[in-house]
Design a protein around this nucleic acid. Structure first.
Length: 793
DNA sequence: CAACCTCGAGTTCA
DNA sequence: CTCGAGGTTG
């Protein structure tokens, strides 16, 4: 008698699914692994012989589909949340202070819902990847990463290989359409085992379980994914068809239901009542943190009652009914091997600690900034010290303190070296400044490299593919002595440069061994450089790297003065007519253009085809400021207050003022002291020359500056807007551009002057501050609506 | 001149 | 993101 293959396949599938569930979800296997494998092999053989019998939910699908392809985009019907994070205030003297953020969270709920000690669902916060699983008629049909919350990537094939994700739901009563959210993670034991094996076979070792999980899920080849031992815990469930009706009335009950349907839920999940309950849970999990089979970085509290959740609602994308309570940043001790100096673009000499590599919060830290010499003195860090390193809320490692009793005998306090380690120029400190600087300027290789890197950076000339390493080689071998030289480079230059660099390093790339020369990268670079020629005046000014001229000052200069030729020959006091430019910045700009070398570089750039667009007349708004009195007031003449400057201006133009005797000035109403100070000042030839240049430049500006014409009023004129958090439909830059096009000023920090804050998910302190100051807050949807409206009209 | 607001510059690791 | 310093304002 022959067995019906279809029947047998269904039987095997049911049996395998049951064993799988017992093994992975209940952790209570009922048959030996070998028997399980035998059943699986039988099914694989059966499906191979009868391809028509293959189904979406077959356990054989866990082996992983092969073939490489890009991940399709998945739009989440219900956006995936981002939670607000709360940290302990470790400096607080008592418990109420230490858990202030959590206490606030509970209080807000109690006040708004008018209840005491609400019930929370409490969960460990796994350090993995949030994903969303979709089930239709009980069958797993699609899995996606969180992505930015509204759009993720389709990783269905890879998720099928995760054994604890049910491919078909158990039991009954599940809705036709079901979406389950949870965390894919790599259990610690699996991580260790994987790495042990990888070390043996010489394969790449995973940095930490989290990276392991992320890397595995994004494997293009699901067969590769199948080899990585991932697991899954569910923590949320939605019915996308009727989102407002979740499963039952309580989150904890919904999770219990998920368990019945075959989803694994972390055994540490439970409920807790009121602030005291939350803190007890936090402590309990914290104590067990190291002995749990997976990495966690905190716990999550969710208001258990769904009706309450709906009432609390959202601030932008973050729910007000849930919060992540993170454990304090992990601290580790290590030994400080050396302190070396980093030279920045402006010559700033930043001491950096080289550490004996240490694992902190999931990554290996080998470097940590010490900011400046003052910081080193404050911490009293010395070479050889054992130091405590922490990766705080953000990513950047910092040295918290030294362990004094572990200091080696004879360790000496550290001092800033007198000369630059790169160019041997003197390292000096400006009066009253915290930073020490290498005085070598562009003659210092480090500063030249940084200057070129800045020039090519995205917000400056935006040269694609020009990385720091290439720049270092270009400078080292003398291909480039200024940014202008970039535009004279050809493919051959880059290839030759690379060859020399490889030679020096003693490395021979595979391509050279094969007797070929790779040139694609060089072609791309040359194209990138060529494409950067067409730029704007503001980008160009920014890319020059003038001290005190960042993006926004460059933009202001371009908008108000409009013409590179005008700007590069303007006497410095005139720059103060541009808003937010004061004496210090104006002098710095003037000083930059006074250097013949800088002028030559600009000439060379223009000669090699850099195009900053057509010159514009100065902004009409400039006109009111274009007076001789204003100019004299800006010129930093000793004792000359604005009032006195007006009196002085009334006495004549540059020629008259250079010739008038003190008597005449005093007769004109100036106090003796002021007149004397002025005469003393103008005795300096360079001051006299400045006066003449200023007068001439003012004359010229007056001729070309248009009368204030009634510019069309824009809807956001005079409004100051701050963007915070992540925007999803457009980049922050794009949002900024569009708002500015409507007349708004987009600024980086919230203050009383802010009119509006646009908050995306992940918004932090800025959002809190906006709430505190009672400033209007929009979410992205509202912004998009507004922009669409404006765009239409 | 003090308080407050902005901008610029520097920073780590995968 | 954070610090330090420059600019503006009351």
């Amino acid at each position: 008698m022959t067995v019906n293959p279809a029947h047998r396949a269904a039987e095997l599938r049911a049996e395998l699914a049951e064993h799988n569930y017992r093994y992975h979800v209940l952790d209570d296997p009922s048959i030996p692994d070998a028997d399980y494998d035998a059943l699986l092999r039988e099914l694989i053989a059966l499906e191979a012989a009868h391809p028509e019998l293959q189904t979406e939910d077959s356990p054989t699908r866990r082996v992983g589909a092969s073939g490489s392809r890009d991940f399709a985009e998945v739009v989440h019907d219900i956006p995936m949340l981002s939670l607000d994070n709360a940290f302990d205030d470790v400096d607080a003297p008592d418990d109420t202070g230490r858990f202030a953020a959590i206490a606030d969270f509970v209080r807000r709920i109690e006040n708004r819902l008018d209840i005491a000690d609400p019930l929370f669902s409490v969960e460990p916060k796994l350090d993995g990847l949030a994903i969303s699983l979709r089930y239709e008629h009980g069958v797993f049909v699609r899995g996606a990463t969180r992505g930015d919350g509204s759009k993720g990537e389709d990783v269905t094939a890879n998720l099928r290989t995760v054994k604890t994700i049910p491919l078909r739901l158990r039991g009954s009563g599940w809705p036709e359409l079901l979406e389950v959210r949870g965390e894919v993670y790599m259990p610690r034991a699996a991580f260790e085992a994987y790495n042990a094996k990888a070390r043996e076979t010489g394969e790449k070792v995973l940095a930490n379980p989290r990276n392991g999980a992320a890397g595995s899920l994004r494997q293009k080849d699901a067969q590769e994914s199948a080899k990585r031992p991932l697991a899954f815990y569910a923590y949320a469930v939605y019915l996308p068809a009727t989102p407002e009706q979740n499963l039952g009335e309580r989150h904890s009950a919904a999770l219990a239901r998920l368990r019945e349907w075959g989803f694994p839920v972390a055994p540490e999940v439970g409920t807790a009542r009121g602030l005291a309950g939350l803190i007890a849970y936090y402590r309990r999990i914290g104590e067990r943190r190291d002995s749990l089979p997976y990495d966690i970085d905190g716990v999550v509290y969710k208001l258990d009652d769904y009706a309450g959740q709906r009432e609390m609602g959202f601030v932008s994308r973050a729910p007000r009914w849930a919060i992540a309570h993170k454990f304090p940043a992990q601290e580790k001790s290590t030994v400080l091997e050396d302190i070396y100096i980093n030279i920045g673009r402006t010559g700033a000499a930043t001491p950096t600690a080289r550490l004996v590599p240490v694992h902190v919060g999931g990554v290996t830290v080998t470097n940590a900034t010490l900011h400046n010499a003052d910081q080193i003195a404050r911490l009293d860090v010395r070479i050889g010290d054992t130091v405590i390193v922490r990766r705080a809320g953000d990513v950047i490692p910092e040295i918290v303190r030294v362990v004094p009793h572990l200091r080696p005998a004879g360790a000496k306090p550290w001092h800033m070296p007198g000369t630059c380690p790169v160019c041997r120029s003197e390292i000096v400190r400006e009066e009253g400044e915290a930073v020490w600087r290498c005085s070598g300027g562009l003659a210092c290789a480090a500063q030249l490299v940084q200057a070129i890197f800045h020039f090519g950076s995205r917000r400056a000339m935006d040269i694609d593919g020009l990385g720091e390493r290439y720049i270092e080689s270009l400078c080292e071998f003398g291909y480039v002595k200024s940014v202008a030289d970039l535009y004279a480079l050809g493919i051959d230059d880059f290839v030759e440069m690379k060859r020399r660099a490889d030679e020096r390093d003693g490395t021979t790339p595979e391509t050279v061994k094969a007797g070929k020369v790779a040139t694609k990268w060089a072609e791309n670079l040359v194209d990138g450089i060529a494409a950067s020629r067409r730029t704007s005046l503001e980008r160009f000014l920014y890319s020059l790297g003038i001290k005190h001229v960042g993006e926004s000052t460059a933009k202001a200069l371009a908008a108000w003065l409009g013409d590179l030729e005008r700007i590069r020959h303007m006497p410095w006091p005139l720059f103060t007519f541009v808003p937010d430019v004061g004496g210090e910045v104006a002098r710095s700009i003037g000083h930059f253009f006074d250097q013949p070398g800088n002028q030559q570089v600009i000439d060379a750039l223009l000669a090699r085809g850099v195009d900053v667009g057509a010159p514009q007349p100065p902004a009409a708004k400039l006109r009111d400021k274009l007076t001789w009195a204003e100019l004299l007031a800006a010129a930093a003449i000793p004792r000359l207050t604005p009032v006195r400057a007006r009196q002085l201006a009334a006495l004549g133009g540059a020629d008259e003022l250079l010739q008038s005797e003190i008597d005449a000035l005093v007769a004109g109403g100036l106090p003796d002291k002021v007149a004397e100070a002025f005469v003393l000042w103008r005795a300096e030839p360079e001051h006299a020359a400045l006066l003449v240049r200023c007068a001439a430049a003012l004359e010229q500006l007056l001729q070309v500056t248009p009368q204030s014409s009634a510019a069309p009023a824009r809807p956001l004129d005079g409004k100051t807007i701050v963007l915070t958090g992540t925007l999803e439909a457009m980049s922050r830059d794009e949002a900024k551009d569009r708002l500015e096009a409507l007349g708004a000023k987009v600024s980086g920090s919230v203050s009383k002057k802010t009119d509006l804050v646009v908050a995306g998910p992940g918004a932090g302190s800025k959002l809190d501050k906006a709430n505190e100051l009672g400033i209007a807050i929009w979410d992205e949807a509202r912004l998009l609506g507004f922009l669409a409206e404006q765009g239409a009209s």
